[in-house]
Nucleic acid binder design. Structure first.
Length: 110
DNA sequence: AGGTTGACAAAGG
DNA sequence: GCCTTTGCCAACC
């Protein structure tokens, strides 16, 4: 049996795994889909094991900006990976969620 | 058993 | 547009 920290976390990381490349999702959106507060989504990402097949870099806050925990090297890493997938940042280092924001079932907006 | 903190969001001033 | 307060649910002290 697996060593899942919490069923909710398993659901969150599974949801994040469903995010296609070149797309991003906000914590509040994930929290709303999995049925929990946005903080739990952040905690799920924070407790993710190293080497997890979860594209946490595709998870950003509602403003389309990178999270505080990734501040520093994390910001550069997250931004670098997103740009590698085709995501473009604006002059303020934020992403246009109206264009890159993704949703399960509402996908389809190249 | 209780209080604080946290990779956040929404509403109010 | 900015900052402050409240709510989220689980983990940590």
């Amino acid at each position: 049996m697996a060593c899942e920290r919490h069923a909710l976390y398993g659901r969150i990381d599974d949801w994040v795994r469903g995010i296609p490349p070149g797309r991003v999702a906000s914590y509040g959106q994930i929290g709303a889909f999995v049925g929990c507060g946005p903080r739990q989504v952040g905690r799920a990402m924070a407790t993710l094991p190293p080497g997890a097949d979860v594209p946490w870099h595709r998870v950003v806050n509602s403003r389309g900006a990178l999270s505080t925990r990734t501040a520093g090297d994390g910001h550069l890493l997250q931004r670098h990976r997103l740009e590698a997938e085709g995501v473009v940042f604006d002059g303020r280092g934020t992403i246009d969620l109206g264009h890159y924001g993704w949703s399960p079932g509402g996908a389809g907006h190249p």
